[in-house]
Amino acid sequence: MPGGDPLSPEADNARAYAEAVRTVFGELPDLRHVPELPGRGAIASMTGRALAVVDGLPADVQPAGWRLTDATGIDQRRARSLLAQDLDRVEEQAQGYAGPFKLQVTGPWTLAATVEKPRGDKVLADHGARRDLAQGLAEGMLAHVADVRRRVPGASELLVQVDEPALPAVLGGQVPTASGYGRHRVVQPPEASEALATVFAAVEEAGGVPLVHSCAPGFPIGLVRGAGARGISVDLAVLDAASYDPLAEAVEAGERVLLGAVPSVDPATAPTAKSVTERVHRLLEMLGLEPTPGLVVTPACGLAGASAAWARSALDLARQAARDVDS
C-alpha cells in the first residue's frame, strides 16, 4: 500500500501505517491482512521485511542494496523492530476479528535474485548460499507465522502469501549479474521446487496455508502447486494461455485463487465494479468453470505505487466485485 517516507519522522510513518491498517480492516471485512508500506525505506521493502524474518543469516544495507554479512547490521535490527511495531498495530485492530487473515513474505527465489553475498554478486550465483537462504527463511517463518497467529487469535484460516515476482526470471535465466553485462544461469525446476517446498512446509507446520503470488509474465503455476502451495495469486493482465489449465486445476481443487483484476496504480479511467465482475466472469467462462468459495478478487499487484485515494477505491472495487461474482 502507499504511505510512508524514508525521510519523514518516525512518528509520521507510524501514523501512516496505522492509517493503512485501518483502511485494510475497514475496506476488507472478509479477508484482512498485514499491510506493507515500502515507501518507508529499505527496512520496509519486500526484501527488508523478509530479512527481518529470516533466521540465522545476518544482513545489512550496502550501497548496492541488501547484502548478507558476518554479523547482524543496524538495518536488519531496524527492520525487525519495525515489523514488530507494525504487528502491534495490526493486533490492536484485530481484536474481536473472526475470519480468514493473510500475511505475506518475499519468497526464496526473489530473495536470492535480490540479496547479495558477502563479497558481492547475488545469492542466486551460489548454490549453497541460495539453499541456506531458503532454509533460513523457512526457519524464520515458523516463528513469524506462530507470532501472527498469537496476535490474531480469531483467524479461522491464516493465509501466507509468498511473493515471487522474480521466479519466472530465475527459471528463464534472465536475472542480471552484478556487472549488468551477463545473466545468471538458469535454475532448474527441481531445485526451484525444492526451495519453495522447504518454505511451504514450514508455513504449514506453523499452522498457515501457503499460497504464491506473482504478477510477472510466465508465472509457473504448476511448479508452485507441485511444491506444495495451497493457493495462487495472479495478475489477469499478464496471464497467458499456458497458465489456463493449471489455473483451472487450482480452482477445481477448491484452492484459494486470488484473481488480480483491479489496477494497482491510478488508471486513466477507473473501472466499475460491474466491469471488473464481467472480466472475472469472462475468464471463468473461458475456463469452463463456475465461481467457487475459494475465488477472491484483488488488485493486480501491490498498491505501493497508487495514491491513497486509489488504494481505497481499489480495495472497495475488489470487495464489490468479489460479492457480485458470487451472486
Rank of each mutant, 00 (worst) to 15 (best):
G41P: 00
Q85S: 13
S179F: 00
L289P: 08
P190E: 06
D132Y: 02
V280E: 08
A250F: 10
G207H: 00
T272W: 03
L28Q: 12
F25Q: 02
G120A: 08
L259G: 05
P6M: 05
M286D: 14
L159T: 08
M141N: 02
R282D: 15
L284Q: 05
G288C: 10
R185T: 04
Q85H: 08
P210T: 02
G107C: 05
P108K: 11
P246R: 11
E252M: 12
A169E: 03
D30Q: 05
A322V: 01
R225N: 01
V187I: 13
T106L: 15
A216H: 12
A143F: 00
E139F: 02
A166T: 00
V187T: 10
E204V: 01
A11E: 14
R183A: 05
R22V: 03
V186D: 01
P58C: 09
A134D: 08
A16W: 03
L37S: 00
W109H: 13
R15P: 01
L284W: 07
T72H: 09
V24E: 05
A20S: 15
R32A: 05
C215K: 12
A155C: 08
G154P: 05
D86W: 02
D126F: 04
V186H: 11
P165V: 14
L259P: 03
R150L: 11
G39P: 02
L236F: 00
A44S: 15
G120E: 10
A192S: 01
R89M: 13
L315S: 09
R67Q: 15
T198A: 15
G39Q: 03
I74A: 15
G136Y: 06
L284I: 06
R312Q: 11
V251L: 12
R130I: 04
E164R: 07
P58F: 07
L82G: 09
R151H: 02
P168S: 07
V54I: 07
P2W: 09
R49G: 01
A237C: 03
Q76E: 15
A14G: 05
V187C: 04
D75F: 15
L82Y: 07
T114R: 09
L137Y: 04
L287F: 11
G173N: 11
K122M: 12
E19L: 10
P220V: 06
T23Y: 04
G136E: 07
L289M: 11
L82Q: 13
G99E: 07
Y181N: 01
